[in-house]
Every structure is written in structure tokens, then in C-alpha cells.
Design a protein around this nucleic acid. Structure first.
Lengths: 185, 185, 185, 185
DNA sequence: GATGAATGAGAGTTCATTCAT
DNA sequence: GATGAATGAACTCTCATTCAT
């Protein structure tokens, strides 16, 4: 693995363990077995490094969420598939997920990168639009609708990650159902 | 207004404007017209100051959320009242709300204070339990259920606060309805 | 007891407990039950306060050392009397003694006060001069001679105060004898 | 010379000139031509720096005191050799000597380092024990005896360093003789 | 005389960043 | 490309001192 990857992986680990604000270059260097100057050969500075880690995580999550996505299948299938993928990503890649969840609106992450193209979001929005055209999903601002679904999944994961409850098939099922009922007519 | 209040208000303002991590004592002092030592006459240090501001905001929000709450009224009334109060608080006191929303799980906020007694949460949980007994609300883990509602309101407010949509009577109504439908049988 | 005395006594206590450098006005005020401004009604500042405490201790020690001193008695009696008084003072007033011993040459104590008139020193020096005239005490610089005696007593007390050995009649006797033999012909 | 040595030497100079308590990092940096951060690359903080300087001085003094020491020679030779070495060290390295003399019992110096292994002290104590066995040195607590000798030398040096008298061959001879007579039978 | 809220110069310390090797 | 010694601006925090009451 390249030094560049060592640095990025170590950075993510440290952010997850200690929080972004207490991650210092000294800690990264030490853990990644890298000289202090080396970081600057790959990244312009701390902000750039963090944003790169964030971008990578977002791309990873975006790809995972569209796994198995087929625009041809029935609307509810597509809806459920994407939300399930999000839950799975949160469970399988907790560090990436938590980083995105916690710091998307931190001033460290530049708006440009936070608002990067996001195919999964576009897919969700087209699902909502379609559903509204078909009369399955209630009429409301598409973004509001998206936010409602997103809010449920995010909150459910958070409760799970701080051990408020397990996240087995049952809870996953109940959560997805809650999403759907929240927005259908 | 006392120096103590000047300091706390200024701190909240700065946190909202620049984020917790970039708020320095120098900025607080200057904006609050206070000598650097004065802060330490009232607060043991930065952490104590920030936690005091947090606690005050939490107490304020807790009081607002239970405004007009009457345990005797019908269950849906109580449910709707509390959620509406939360939305109103978010709209009327955006700085307090955003601070609580953004930093509750930051390492700056001590767990003791984060987990302070919260009457509104208790009220919500008893509403859920009652609703489940009455067969109105679906059977599921109470915390999961609470998290779902909380997640919707939180996400809706966030979308509003970053100007994705307005939050007028219509959107408020739709959001509350989404909450209710998400959890009722 | 007056506020002034409260302040001075508390200061001495704190110096003995924590060392001069870590004694702050805040600690003195709190322990002496005195407002922070009050100190400045009695003392011009920290240096003046400390020097006053020092001067008082020196005067006290000076008086103790000459207790029972009779210029008419035999030379060795006078010699022994003064040194015994010094040992007794160290044992009876350890805080005063340690303060003088530890800080006489600290930059905090002004040279003027450190070199204040000292009747006991003058008495010792006249004893030495007399002894040399009588051919009992060896010829050497009077100050060197005084320093030798002083050094022994001081070091003996220090060893006692850090619990290297007890300081009973036996050790006192041996120490005084050492002093005498060190300088006699 | 390395930056590390620059810092340590400057620190010793400043301590000797102004006293430990008034030595600040700003002064060290400026005088040693070193950036403020550099100190922390070599020393964990002020306490560590000061203790390192102290340790170095103690090691230096310890080595000097045992110079020419030969356990085979006659007892008085050994005794005289060590005390002479101490006087010489005080004369040749006044800054090191004064630092050790003044601050060994300051709260800045950690007990661990103050009580570091000290070959010269051990040598002295074995000289005393031997002397007592041979009936040359009076019977008394070894530490008390050591303290008496130590006290004389220390006090003699102090008087010299504050210009009370010169410290030529004559005074040195008289002081050593005083030491010996103070403890011999 | 007594008070204590307010002060601010200056302390030790952190840490991203530079640059000669 | 990789290094790490050196840097210094910026931070939190301490504490003797002032002054209106």
C-alpha cells in the first residue's frame, strides 16, 4: 500500500477514535510511519487531507448505495434497495459512515465537496418524483420528502451505533416500513 | 446585563457563526468587551464555558418543548404538541437549536451534561408507550420509535435551515403527519 | 487578631506548605478570610508582604538567639548558649526557621532586609574575636570562622528536618562539640 | 554545538543570573537563538528542562568530586581529596555549583532526580564508617557526621561567593582542617 | 477600612507548516 | 520521494493589581 493510502487510512481511523478536532499531524505521522514532511508531498495541508478522506468515503458510500440498483424494477423495490444499502453501508463501514454523518456540516469540509455529485441522492429524488406522478407518494416538496426518509435512516443508525438497540432484521424491517409509510399517500 | 451573560451570549453567537472549534477566547473577549481574565472568574475554562452555554440551551429547549403540554389531553394532541414545539423552537431560536443539534455528541460536551434529565424526552417516551398499549402506535422498541420521530423533525429542520425549502404551515403539517404515519399501526 | 496579622500568618503557613513560588494572593485571601483588596491596604504588593513576613521572622529569631545571653559569662558558655538557642528556635519554630533558611538568598528577599542588623551575629563575631585574642580560637578570618559554625548548625538542622536522624540531647551535644572543635586551636 | 545544548547552557546561565523562578521560555528562546517550539522538541516542558540541567550538573559534580579518588590510600587522604574536589568544583564551575546548592530542595526538582545515585556521597559515608571503625572519627550517626562536613564546606563556599572573604590556599586549608577536627575523636 | 469584580500583561504550550538534506 | 529538526503564530490560562462601591 502506498504512503498516500497509509496516511488517508490512518487519518480516518484517528478521526473515528478521537474526533476530527483532536487529530493532529503528529499523531497521523506516528501511526502511519511516515515523516512529517511526507504528508505535504501528497496533500496541501490538513484541510485538503481531511477533505480527500471525506471525498473518498462519500464516493465509496455512493457506490455502495447504488449496488444492485435497477431503474427498471418496481418503484418500491428501488426505494427499499437504496435504503437497505445505506443501512448496510453504515453497518459494514462504520468509520466511513460515522465520518460522513458527523462532519458533513463541519466547517472543515468545504461546501464544494459536501455538495459533490451524488448519484444515490439523484436516484432517490427521481424515485420520489416518479412515486408522486404515480400517485403512490404524497405530494410535497421533493427535498422535504427526501429529507424525511434520510432523517429516519440516519437517526435509526445513530441509535444503533450508540447501543440504544440492536439493528437486526426486525428493526431494519420496521425502519424501512416507517420510511415508506411516512411518505406514501 | 451581567458580564457572565455577555460572555455566554457572545460564545453562542460565535459558535453559530464559526463553529465550536474555531471559537477562541480572544474572539469572545473582544466581542463581549471583557478582559481576558474575566472569563476565568466565571468559568473554569473553555470546556466549562461551552458546557454552561450548552446546558442553558438545553434547559431552554426543554421548557419550550413542554409548553402547553397537558398529560390529560388525547394522545395525538400531546404528540403533535411536543413536535410542533420542537419545530417552533428551531425556528425561533435557531442558534440554540443548531448548537444542540450539532454538538451534542462532540467530545467537548461532557456526557453528564449531554445526558441531563430531559422531561420532553420522557414525555415522548410515555406517549409512545401509551400509544402502543392503546394499539394506536406500532409495536417496536420505544427508543427506535422515538429515534424515528426525532430523526424526521431534525432532518426537516436541517433542510429548512440550509434553505432547501421553506418551513411554512404546509411543510410543518406535512412533517408532523409524516411522523405520525411513520409510527402508527 | 488584626487582619494584618491574619495575612502575615497565613502567608508564612502557605510558604512553608507549598513553597514561596506557588503562594498566590488568591490562596492567601481565601485562607485568611480577607478580601483581595485588603492586602493592598496593608502591603504595597507581594514583595513587600513577603519581606515583612521575613523581617518579622528574623526579628523573632534574633531575639530567641540572644535569650539568656550574658556578655559577662565565660566565652564557651556564651558560644554554646547562642548555638543552642539557634537549634531550639529551629525546633520550636520550624516554619519561621525554614523560611529564613530557604529564602534568605532568594531574589524575592531584598538585600536590605536580608542584611538587617543582627545582634546575634554581632554577638557571635565578638565571641570569635575574643576567643582569638585569648588564644582559644584559631586565627582565621572572622567571617570564615562564623560561616563554619553557622554551616554546621544549619546543616544539622536540615538533616533533622528531612528526617535523616533525630535531634535529641545526644545529637545536639555532638553537634555543638563539633562546632567548637572545628574552630578552637 | 547542538540546539539542545544551547538551550541547556542558556537555561543554566539564566538561572544563575536571575533565579529559577524568573527564568521564562521567552528569555531562553531569545538568548539561545531558538524558536519557541524548539524547546518542546527536546524537553517535555519547563520542569523537564530544568531537571535535565540539574541532572547534568549533578553528574558533572559527581565526577569531579571523585577525581583522583583512590580507595587504597590512607583515610585522611581520601577525606581531604573529596572535600578539596568539592571546593574546586565550586570555584571552577560556580554556576553549576550554585544551581545545585540553591535548588536541590526546590519543588521544581523532582525527588527522583534529587536523590539520584551519588558515588561521592557513598564514598564519603564509607570513609566515615571506616574512620569510626579505626577509632579515628568520633562515634555518631553517619548521616549527622556527613551533614556536619557538608555543612562546613557549603557554608564556606557561600561566604566566598558573596565576597565575604577570599578562598585561597590558606582559607581552603583552614576549612578542610575545620572539617576534620569537627569529626575526629 | 474592607471588598471583590474586572483587568491584561505575560506565562507555558500546541501544532501545522517549511525547507535543507 | 522521503525526511524530521526547526519554526512561530496563536492558543488557553494565571495572577498581581486596580478601583468603584
Amino acid at each position: 500500500m502506498s504512503k498516500r493510502d497509509d496516511i488517508m487510512n490512518t487519518t480516518l481511523d484517528l478521526i473515528d477514535e478521537e474526533g476530527l478536532q483532536s487529530v493532529t499531524f503528529a499523531k497521523i505521522m506516528k501511526r502511519a510511519n511516515v515523516g512529517s514532511g511526507t504528508i505535504f508531498n501528497y496533500f496541501g495541508g490538513k484541510e485538503e487531507l481531511v477533505n480527500e478522506v471525506y471525498r473518498k468515503a462519500r464516493i465509496h458510500m455512493g457506490a455502495c448505495m447504488l449496488e444492485g440498483y435497477d431503474p427498471e424494477t418496481e418503484l418500491y423495490e428501488r426505494f427499499k434497495g437504496i435504503q437497505l444499502n445505506r443501512l448496510r453501508f453504515a453497518i459494514d463501514f462504520p468509520k466511513e459512515y460515522r465520518f460522513i454523518d458527523s462532519y458533513s456540516y463541519s466547517p472543515y469540509i468545504s461546501p464544494d465537496i459536501r455538495n459533490m455529485e451524488d448519484d444515490s441522492r439523484e436516484a432517490m429524488e427521481s424515485i420520489i418524483t416518479d412515486g408522486q406522478k404515480q400517485g403512490i407518494i404524497r405530494e410535497m416538496n421533493v427535498m422535504l420528502c427526501h429529507q424525511i426518509i434520510h432523517g429516519i435512516i440516519t437517526a435509526v443508525v445513530r441509535g444503533y451505533q450508540i447501543n440504544k438497540y440492536p439493528l437486526n432484521e426486525l428493526q431494519v424491517h420496521q425502519s424501512l416500513e416507517a420510511c415508506w409509510k411516512a411518505i406514501k399517500v
